[in-house]
């Protein structure tokens, strides 16, 4: 597709851009915001920003990539406005070590190929719910880096922080997600 055709300078192009990219953008907003009303507000805000700033679209990236970033920025703006959840710690979810510095790790059964595991609805729902359980400061880094596909540097830029902070949060978020998923592999209660 010629991306210049998608540049929403007029209503027809805007409508085409909404219909073509809207579902994916709404999915991104839903993941980040976990709230349908906020996600819709975010997407609307992002398209209007894209429309009013269409002269800033320089064609160096695809229109979809440019729009994706606007949606992410809009979602992050909404998250900042929201009253932040009091729970921002990962207590009980990080790796544990004994007095000798040795890891305390349960036995995992990871035999099935990833594709096969992902066919299981229970697994998918559990992964989804586990990501949603993470405190925002970790959840957002995990989503941006591992799911939306931004680089560590890009995430740092989007969150207006530095790479070291992003790396620390990403590692903790992944470790906490692993802990939350343990019941799936150790036969415990989900």
């Amino acid at each position: 597709m010629d991306d210049t055709e998608n540049n929403p300078r007029d209503s027809t192009a805007l409508e085409q851009a909404i219909r073509e990219h809207g579902p994916a953008m709404l999915a991104v907003a839903r993941r980040l915001l976990r709230n349908e009303e906020d996600a819709r507000e975010c997407v609307q805000d992002a398209y209007l920003r894209a429309f009013t700033k269409s002269d800033q679209f320089d064609g160096r990236s695809t229109f979809r990539t440019w729009l994706h970033r606007i949606v992410v920025n809009s979602a992050l703006g909404l998250l900042r406005k929201r009253k932040r959840s009091a729970v921002q710690t990962l207590d009980g979810l990080l790796p544990e070590f004994d007095a000798n510095g040795c890891r305390i790790e349960p036995m995992w059964q990871i035999d099935e190929p990833l594709e096969k595991v992902l066919e299981n609805r229970l697994v998918r729902d559990t992964v989804h719910q586990s990501i949603d359980k993470l405190p925002d400061i970790y959840r957002i880094v995990l989503l941006l880096r591992d799911i939306e596909g931004y680089s560590t540097e890009e995430v740092a830029q989007l969150l207006d922080t530095n790479v070291a902070v992003v790396k620390t949060r990403l590692h903790r978020a992944r470790a906490a997600l692993k802990r939350l998923l343990e019941p799936l592999w150790t036969g415990g209660e989900i």
Partner: peptide, 21 residues
């Protein structure tokens, strides 16, 4: 072996997240 197991589980968790959507 604990860290070996941990690393495999960590990797699997990351892959699950990355491929979920």
């Amino acid at each position: 072996t604990d860290c070996k197991r941990y690393l495999a589980a960590y990797k699997r968790s990351v892959e699950l997240g990355q491929n979920l959507f």
